[in-house]
Nucleic acid binder design. Structure first.
Lengths: 351, 351
DNA sequence: GACAGCAACCAAAGCGCTTTGGATTGATTC
DNA sequence: GAATCAATCCAAAGCGCTTTGGTTGCTGTC
């Protein structure tokens, strides 16, 4: 069923039927009702390609998800983010176009999306420091929202981000308040903007409390389980082990826990851990009581916010860029406890 | 730059340029070269919407990913599957259209995709027993490949699946060979086809070896970490605890390990575990030595296979349906050991 | 009674491509 | 030398929609 058929059934012109369906005023209410009823009865759906051709708009949003070339890792938060954004698209009758791309090919893909006009806008995933994609998208004039931030010049583009700096500053202070002073930071790759900010927050709190961050206790790698295991094992077996870990990802924290338990210790007793929890649907942080104490912020709702913001920008172009900074909750779970006394004693002894 | 402009630059008709670019024979090789060079130089890209309108084909594959309504869980294998399929699409210049849909809305979405003609084919994710989507897609005549199987009538449609039954049969036999006879099955939701088959494999092995599967040791739920924790804890504290667990997902196994260690035991000593490992990029099963003994099959390469198969079906319609059954590897890791002697002794005592 | 103004409708062009049904050439055949 | 044929090329229709630039008929105004 297409417009032509529908309008001939109704004995109206295509123009009138199109206008009736799209809410234009130069059509009587009576006619509009008739048209809408007929459209429903005949199960008429406008062909999106034809609509796109005629209008230049596509009702499609592009998501380019980068796959790390070295490790072939797909970001685990991606599925939940997409689920959040997808809900919004479904509600607003938009489609989502996905390109999975080796990170080196990204620029080409973005240019292609823009020049082909296959999408009305894009969401930028996994921004790095001074990410070139921001300038690129501004240059080609494609509306976009960044999930996260891309370094300096925050005001020049639209983004939705968690206040990573503040979250990790608070988490660090929380550990210090519990008496910990040897705190390890198990971070993600620090070319990623979010990881850099988390490190800043950690350092700010440490210095603010007069503590010297130990370089050997700060690591930055792709956030796998094995990374957590390896690094934690190494640190805990070293002469001056940490008593607490601040960990960028739940998956890495699972590796840390494995190392801790392999060495015959217990989380939330000899060793404390605070993680950042993205509230991934398939990896919930416990049920009633969180397994890990955590800074918490739902990646799924970030997906919703990004999508909503982008649709808004597309609907009303020419506005100043928009930003949304989310504060993470700090939730206490089973993985934190006061720094062990023995340690304190031993350290006092050394002085 | 569009066809019209390009052809006027070349002094040729749109027809000829179009034919030259699309490899039709009625164009001289000399002209074809000129046209291709000009297209490259002018960075010409055909507008996919216009192409779609004219041909009825869209070079787009639909992926409908269901989100469980009860638990709002996005399947964790999804990201890696998509990465695999996405590679294939990129290579073949196809796009991927993603719809995230509450499982109750699925039928509507599939019908919409078909009637709007927004995709040339779809991949069916997470098939359930006697999944209605198979009949639906056959009815509307949209090419499709199922990732997994949808119960009976395997020969009537195209699919790519792991031999779940055989994998779990082997895994069970492996545990029995190690002397285990109280083996727990921590399965996924058994309305899912894959989970049902795994259960069958488990039961077949048990019965084949003269063991009576204990109903209280067989569970079936959404595969979260907490599910593993809760169920394992419960089973291990019961009067007749299992000595081994067969677990459908790595994430659930992580919960099981947590329970085991909470109770002061060790995996690969008092308690053995075999999992199914989908080789998720962000959740590798250890580095050199697998953390968990596992039946292993890469979900990413399943994504590639599904996509390749679907593109093939689209290119050459009218062929009989195609199937691909993958055998999982059985890899031995740190989580399995012979059944503890004490148990054997205690059991002997009871007789 | 002429005219403006308005509400309601429509014909046809246009979006950028493919494809049908020729047209034009030069070579080949008898 | 006329007819045939293959090789190239082209004009124009068509895909299904939106939108421009109307037309038509009616009401109200002076």
């Amino acid at each position: 069923m297409n417009l032509k058929e529908l309008s001939s059934i109704l004995g109206l012109s295509q123009t009138t039927v199109s206008r009736a369906l799209n809410g234009y005023p130069e059509v009587s209410e009576e006619t509009r009702r008739r048209v809408k009823a007929a459209a429903r009865d005949n199960n008429y759906r406008p062909n999106p390609r034809a609509m796109g051709l005629a209008t230049g708009r596509t009702r499609t949003i592009g998501h380019v998800i980068p796959v790390s070339t070295q490790h072939e890792i797909v970001n685990p938060i991606f599925a939940d983010f997409i689920a959040g954004a997808g809900e919004v698209y479904a509600r607003n009758d938009y489609d989502m176009l996905l390109s999975v791309v080796a990170d080196v090919d990204e620029e080409r893909i973005y240019r292609q999306l823009a020049s082909r006009g296959s999408v009305d806008g894009v969401i930028v995933h996994g921004p790095r420091e001074n990410d070139p994609r921001v300038a690129l998208l501004q240059e080609v004039g494609l509306p976009f929202v960044v999930h996260g931030r891309a370094g300096a010049g925050d005001g020049a583009y639209s983004w939705v981000d968690v206040n990573n700096r503040h979250a990790f500053e608070r988490a660090t202070n929380f550990l210090i308040d519990l008496g910990h002073d040897r705190i390890a930071l198990i971070n993600g790759v620090e070319t990623m903007d979010f990881a850099r900010r988390r490190r800043e927050g950690f350092l700010k709190a440490m210095k603010g409390r007069g503590l010297h961050p130990d370089a050997s206790l700060m690591r930055s790698e792709e956030m796998t389980e094995f990374y957590g295991y390896r690094v934690a094992r190494e640190m805990l077996m070293a002469p001056a082990p940490p008593t607490a870990f601040l960990i960028s990802s739940m998956i890495t924290a699972i590796g840390v826990r494995r190392a801790v338990e392999d060495l015959g210790m217990k989380l939330g007793r000899e060793v404390s851990v605070v993680i950042h929890d993205d509230e991934l649907s398939y990896l919930r942080n416990g049920e009633d009581i969180p397994i890990f104490s955590a800074t918490r912020s739902s990646v799924r709702s970030a997906g919703q916010l990004c999508a909503d913001m982008l649709l808004d920008i597309i609907r009303q172009p020419g506005q100043p860029p928009r930003q949304r900074l989310l504060e993470a909750e700090l939730t206490v779970g089973l993985s934190t406890a006061p720094a062990p006394k023995i340690e304190t004693a031993r350290r006092a002894e050394r002085r």
